[in-house]
Design a protein around this nucleic acid. Structure first.
Length: 274
DNA sequence: AAAGTAGCCTGGAAGC
DNA sequence: TGCTTCCAGGCTACTT
């Protein structure tokens, strides 16, 4: 499931491949993927030239000039692929943007959770999901990030996953950051010092940066814009390590549901309070 | 206010 | 072997 690092890597790859290219036409193979009237979507993007590709939270955003933006939310299994020449759609290809140079952009999504839109700048800024997004964790100081959690009584993992508090963190990087910071996923910020919360975000930033530098994590079916896998999954310390032993203390990792998600953690190394 | 859960989807793994 | 069940999880909507 692509999170901030994977979406960042995809966006950078798409930017290299696509800026300056022009969309000729669109084929919508699964109408449910396009979260707006499909005729409007198709007519808006046809003939437009790609000026920039970037990321906000877990959204890939392709700018078509100053006032039109294609947004892709990959959810669990979405992929955005840039092809240099004609390719035939696969079973799970949902939307194809044909380019005037013979290439294409393919939105591939096994489970159909992914969402694609083409919005004006005003529509984008008024979109409730977009409007509520919290700050980017790599563009905000750990002090400011920690301040958003201070005193809260909900479990900390749920807060990290809440996109309106901090944008871009999902289950993998939440578990990894909490383990590295030595904080239990069910700990409450109200039981932790500001110092501990700042340290958590130091670890969040380190983990996200390392994952980006290793081209993201490939579990299940993540691939970048060119179809290549990432390498950060080899650096996981807790995520998906159910039944294994903690490398720090040797105790067996615990697993359970926290904030509605599968969670793995070390009950000995990860504290509930300061 | 906050926490829990169903639902959206599919395929791969596990269980029988 | 082949069937059924479970599980993965980002996000919304609804309930407690």
């Amino acid at each position: 499931m692509p999170e901030l690092p994977e979406v960042e890597v995809i966006s950078r790859g798409l930017a290299k491949a696509l800026v300056g290219k022009t969309i000729k036409s669109v084929s919508i193979l699964n109408h449910g993927t396009v979260k707006m009237p499909w005729q409007i979507f198709a007519s808006r993007v046809a003939g437009c030239t790609i000026t920039r590709v970037h990321r906000r939270a877990k959204l890939v955003i392709i700018d078509l000039g100053d006032d039109l933006h294609i947004t892709f939310h990959l959810k669990m299994t979405g992929r955005v692929l840039a092809h240099e020449s004609a390719t035939s759609p696969e079973k799970h290809t949902r939307v194809v943007f044909d380019l005037t140079d013979g290439g294409s952009i393919e939105f591939h999504d096994t489970r159909k959770f992914g969402e694609v839109r083409a919005l004006s700048t005003e529509e984008l800024e008024e979109w409730s999901f977009y409007r509520k997004l919290g700050p980017e964790p790599l563009e905000t100081s750990v002090s400011d990030l920690a301040e958003r959690l201070v005193g809260k009584k909900a479990n900390i993992k749920g807060l990290l996953l809440n996109q309106s508090i901090v944008a871009g963190i999902g289950n993998i990087y939440a578990d990894e950051s909490l383990f590295r910071a030595g904080i239990h996923p069910k700990a409450k910020p109200s039981d932790l010092s500001k110092q501990s919360l700042e340290n958590l975000f130091v670890e969040v930033q380190k983990v996200l940066k390392q994952a980006i530098s290793e081209n993201g994590s490939s579990i299940r079916n993540y691939v970048d814009a060119g179809g290549d896998s990432g390498g950060f999954q080899n650096s996981f310390k807790v995520y998906g390590k159910k039944g294994e032993l903690c490398p720090q203390c040797g105790e067996q990792f615990e697993t359970g549901t926290v904030a509605g998600r599968g969670s793995t953690f070390c009950a000995k190394c990860q504290k509930m309070s300061d």
